[in-house]
């Protein structure tokens, strides 16, 4: 039995080495096309502690953060198809979501199945962390985090894009966590850029998910070395008829 685990370790090592050796990656920019809505100021008056954290002017909503030329932040880009049947080790390091200034930081993030998520409370006021996964194996939770409780650790056990987390005390607070069974995902930065590294050669379906805008997918082929490019342009959904 020991032999078996050892050989499995070797295999993993080999796989990751070969991945590193031969793997490329996917890089790209996500842009938003259309008029950029103004993010409204959040009224935090109901909780003086929250309000007190924003002396430089009020916090604003984050549901569509587009920069010059529409470069779009907080887009979760991930490999949706092309990795079937492969297994990846769960990282030992925890992902972190902080509650700072009564805002979740980061607003959008990704973790692997089974990876620990440390949820911090840097505010010193009561938050409750209410996760609302939809798939069966992911356990919904709703934990109170008074000022004194600085950290809780949770995890999700099944693939799900995305799990929404909210705070019922501060209804403006929301975050999204993508749960995947592989490490090939990224969240766009302020400049709308993302980079997925260490992807073995192959053809993949890559999807860009945004909390309000309809997702888009692209087929991307990664050759032995070098990086493939995938750019996405997201548009607002068609207006609903009333």
């Amino acid at each position: 039995m020991r032999y078996v685990t050892k050989s499995a370790d070797f295999l993993l090592l080999f796989l990751s080495l070969s991945g590193a050796l031969f793997a490329g990656g996917i890089k790209g920019t996500v842009k938003y096309e259309g008029k950029v809505p103004r993010m409204k100021a959040i009224r935090m008056a109901a909780d003086p502690i929250c309000d007190g954290k924003h002396t430089q002017g009020p916090a604003r909503a984050e549901w569509l953060l587009a920069g010059p030329e529409g470069v779009l932040q907080n887009v979760f880009v991930y490999v949706e198809k092309g990795l079937e049947g492969k297994e990846f080790k769960t990282p030992e390091t925890s992902a972190v979501i902080d509650q700072r200034g009564c805002i979740y930081v980061p607003h959008v993030s990704g973790v692997q199945v089974g990876q620990k998520i440390d949820i911090l409370n840097s505010d010193g006021t009561l938050h409750n962390v209410h996760a609302m996964p939809k798939v069966k194996k992911n356990v919904a939770f709703n934990e109170a985090m008074p000022g004194a409780r600085k950290k809780i650790t949770k995890q999700f056990d099944e693939k799900e894009v995305m799990v929404r987390i909210k705070c019922d005390v501060h209804p403006w607070m929301g975050a999204f966590v993508g749960v995947l069974d592989h490490p090939f995902f990224a969240v766009t930065d302020k400049a709308g850029n993302f980079e997925i590294k260490g992807l073995p050669a192959g053809t993949y379906t890559v999807t860009a998910w945004h909390e309000r805008l309809p997702a888009k997918s692209a087929t991307v082929t990664v050759k032995g070395e070098g990086e493939a490019t995938a750019d996405f342009v997201l548009k607002r959904p068609p207006k609903k008829k009333n």
């Binding site: 409750n128 962390v129 939770f141 709703n142 934990e143 109170a144 985090m145």
Partner: peptide, 8 residues
Amino acid sequence: GTKMPRPY
């Protein structure tokens, strides 16, 4: 789905 959290 309740918004009541488990008390700390």
